[in-house]
Amino acid sequence: MEAIRIQNLKKYYGKHLGIEDVTFSVNEGEIFGFVGPNGAGKSTTIRILLNFIFPDAGKASVLGKDAVKDSTAIKSFTGYVPSDVRFYGDMTAGEHLAVCSRFYKKSNDEETERLCQLFGLDRTKKFSELSMGNKKKLAVICALSIKPKVLILDEPTNGLDPMVQRQLFSELKSQAASGTTILLSSHNLGEVQEYCNRVAFIKKGTILSVTDLSEKLRQSKIITIWGGEDEHFPEQFQLLEQSDNKRIFRYEGDSKQLLTIMQSFDCNDFTIENESLQERFLELYEREEKL
């Protein structure tokens, strides 16, 4: 079942494009990556989902509730971690957590306590005195402490050290396993590839592709071949790059069959690697640049 549904979403800031015809959906219990360069439209999409801004056209819904009309209801079960955490400077982390919990009907003191222990947050410090990483931890704890059904994270690992990043993703995986839907906007393709089920690539306000990381990307191989200029390559070989006597292909198919094909080629050398998200990302974005 779809937990987040975004259909033909469009937003302009005056004459400047925010997003144009964005459509994708996130399934329940899925960790969904949302990837794109700065200014591509990731935050605009998220801000529409949370009703921070209003769409010019299209619809967005979370667990069947309309992002504009039912935004209060959506926020009652949605946790949000902003990319740039800007809370109240002269309030302590503990006061923020207390204020945060008062907005929800159920008291989540035990969960808050567990998360504070897990991430090692000093609750006595004022927000203005916290480091960037600790500010992010506070936002993460605020979002997770409500035991959300849907979690929206906008570049959550910015400012977090590798240890805390690992703790965060371990926590996110366990939340997803218990049914929480996670939309993760990130620049870090490594973490998206490792933890997400699917990923949407966005550029200049348009979705370029939605890729299933659990299957398609893992089956996809990048083959680099030196020599073999006279060889005729089968249709499954998608040419990505060509220079001098070197050609790079993507192959999506059976691995055993690939080995058989490679044995029949007359080439100087070749390498076979699993395709990384980084390669998929660069290929998609460079292809769009050429267009």
Binding site: L50, F52, S71, Y80, F87, F103
Partner: peptide, 14 residues
């Protein structure tokens, strides 16, 4: 302007 309103806007309050 300060950005603190995001804290409130992300909570279940109209």
């Amino acid at each position: 302007t300060d950005g603190t309103i995001e804290f409130l806007y992300s909570k279940p309050i109209s």
